[in-house]
Design a protein around this nucleic acid. Structure first.
Length: 283
DNA sequence: CGTTACCTGAAA
DNA sequence: TTTCAGGTAACG
C-alpha cells in the first residue's frame, strides 16, 4: 500500500522519535512470524539482533524503511500492502491487526500493524546488495531522462510495468505511476521501448513531480495508509485519474477509463493520454 | 514476458 | 456471494 511518499512521510515522522532510543524488547505475534521474517531472518535471530541495540537513525530506500543500529547493522522493514508502523505510548491499547511491537526505552513503542500479513522484517549486515538491486530514486539527482531511456530500451513490456519494476525505478507504486503517466500524456499499456524521446523526457519529469507532491501532502490514504502517528495523508484528494473511473477528466472532461495492465488496476484519460498508440501486430 | 499466490477483509 | 486491494516473489 505505501509507496515512496507514504514511506518517506513515516520516516520523517519517526526519525526524531526513535533516533538514540534503545530497544528494550521485541514482541512478535507467533502466527505471523514466517511472513514477518520475509523468509530471510529467522525470528529468534531477529529478536536477538534488535534487543539491546540503540537506533542510530531512520532511512529509506525505495519503499524500504532502514533503521540503523549501533552495531553497524540495519533493521529493514517493508510495509507491502497493509503494513503500518506507529509510534505509541507503551500503555496505549493494541492496534487493530497488531502483529508485533518494538519497545523503546522512553515509555513508547513502535507498533507493527498488518491486516494482510505481507510485510517483512529483516536485519542485514550490509545493505549494499539491497541498494544495488533497486533502481534510482526519482527524487534524487542521478535520475534523468537519459537513465529512463536506457531502462526502456528494447523493452516490449507496458511502460507502466517497467515503471513499477523496483529494479528499474525505486518507489513508484500503482497510485503514483498512474498519476505520472497521466501527467506525461502517455498510455499505460504503451510498450516502453516504443516511446519517443519527448514522452520519455516528460515521464522523467512527472514521475519525480508526482512523488514530491505526494510527500508534500503526506501520502495518499485511500484505504489503509496512516502516518507514524496514525493520521491520514491528503494526497488522495488531489489525484487526477487513480480510482476516478467514469468521472470527468479535469483537463478535457472525458470519462476516466479503467483497464488492467500487468495485473494491476489502471486508470487513464483516453483523450489526454494518447502516446503512442499500440503498434499493430505484424501480419 | 504475463499471471498467480501470499492473506484478510471491505465493498460491490 | 463475488470481487477487489496502494506489493512483490515465484511461477510457467
Amino acid at each position: 500500500m505505501p509507496e515512496l511518499p507514504e514511506v518517506e512521510t513515516i520516516r520523517r515522522d519517526l526519525e526524531p522519535l526513535v533516533s538514540g532510543r534503545r530497544i528494550v524488547a521485541v514482541e512478535i505475534d507467533e502466527a505471523t512470524l514466517p511472513l514477518l521474517a520475509g523468509a530471510t531472518t529467522p525470528i529468534e535471530m531477529l529478536r536477538a539482533s534488535l534487543a539491546g541495540r540503540t537506533i542510530t537513525g531512520l532511512g529509506r530506500r525505495g519503499k524500504y524503511l532502514l533503521f540503523g543500529l549501533d552495531d553497524g547493522r540495519t533493521f529493514v522493514a517493508h510495509l507491502r500492502m497493509t503494513g503500518r508502523l506507529l509510534w505509541r505510548d507503551s500503555e496505549a491499547p493494541p492496534e487493530a491487526y497488531e502483529r508485533g511491537r518494538i519497545v523503546l526505552d522512553d515509555g513508547h513503542d513502535l507498533r507493527w500493524s498488518d491486516l494482510r500479513k505481507f510485510g517483512t522484517w529483516r536485519v542485514m549486515d550490509n545493505v549494499t546488495p539491497l541498494f544495488e538491486k533497486l533502481g534510482p530514486e526519482p527524487i534524487d539527482d542521478d535520475y534523468s531522462a537519459r537513465y529512463l531511456r536506457q531502462a526502456f530500451k528494447g523493452r516490449e513490456a507496458a511502460v507502466k510495468s517497467v515503471l513499477l519494476d523496483q529494479e528499474k525505478v525505486a518507489g513508484l507504486g500503482n497510485i503514483y505511476v498512474d498519476e505520472a503517466l497521466f501527467e506525461a500524456g502517455v498510455r499505460p499499456e504503451s510498450r516502453a521501448g516504443a516511446l519517443g524521446d519527448a514522452a520519455v523526457k516528460r515521464l522523467a519529469v512527472t514521475t519525480r513531480e508526482v512523488l514530491l507532491r505526494g510527500i508534500e501532502h503526506r501520502g495518499a490514504s485511500f484505504r489503509d495508509y496512516v502516518d507514524g502517528q496514525g493520521n491520514e495523508g491528503r494526497q488522495h484528494m488531489y489525484v487526477k485519474v487513480f480510482r476516478r473511473t467514469g468521472k470527468p477528466c479535469y483537463t478535457c472532461g472525458s470519462e476516466i477509463q479503467r483497464t488492467v495492465v500487468g495485473g494491476r488496476a489502471t486508470h487513464y484519460c483516453p483523450r489526454c493520454q494518447r502516446f503512442p498508440r499500440r503498434r499493430s501486430k505484424p501480419a
